[in-house]
Computed example of a mutant assay.
Amino acid sequence: MSNSSSDSKLVHEQIQYLEFISSDLERAKKFYSASFDWNFTDYGPEYTAFDGKYVDGGFTVGTPVNGSILVVLYSNDLLSTRDKVVRAGGTIVKDIFSFPGGKRFQFKDLDGYELAVWATE
Rank of each mutant, 00 (worst) to 15 (best):
Y74C: 08
L78S: 00
F31V: 14
G89T: 12
T81M: 14
A88R: 10
E46R: 05
G52K: 05
V71N: 15
D77G: 05
S68K: 04
S22Q: 07
K108V: 11
M1L: 12
G112M: 05
G44R: 08
S22I: 07
E13R: 13
Y32E: 00
P64N: 09
D83S: 12
D77T: 03
D7A: 13
L10R: 09
T63D: 11
R27L: 10
T91V: 15
N39L: 10
E114L: 01
S2F: 03
S5D: 06
S33W: 09
D7E: 15
L10T: 08
N39I: 06
L115M: 15
P64L: 12
K29T: 09
F99N: 04
S80K: 13
K30W: 04
R104Y: 01
I96C: 00
Y113F: 14
A88P: 08
D77S: 10
D51N: 03
D7R: 12
D7K: 12
L10V: 09
R27F: 05
R87N: 15
D37H: 08
I21F: 01
I92R: 02
G62L: 06
K94S: 05
L79N: 04
V85H: 02
F31Q: 11
K29I: 14
E114P: 04
P64F: 11
L73Y: 11
E19I: 05
D109E: 13
L25C: 14
A49E: 03
Y17C: 03
L10D: 10
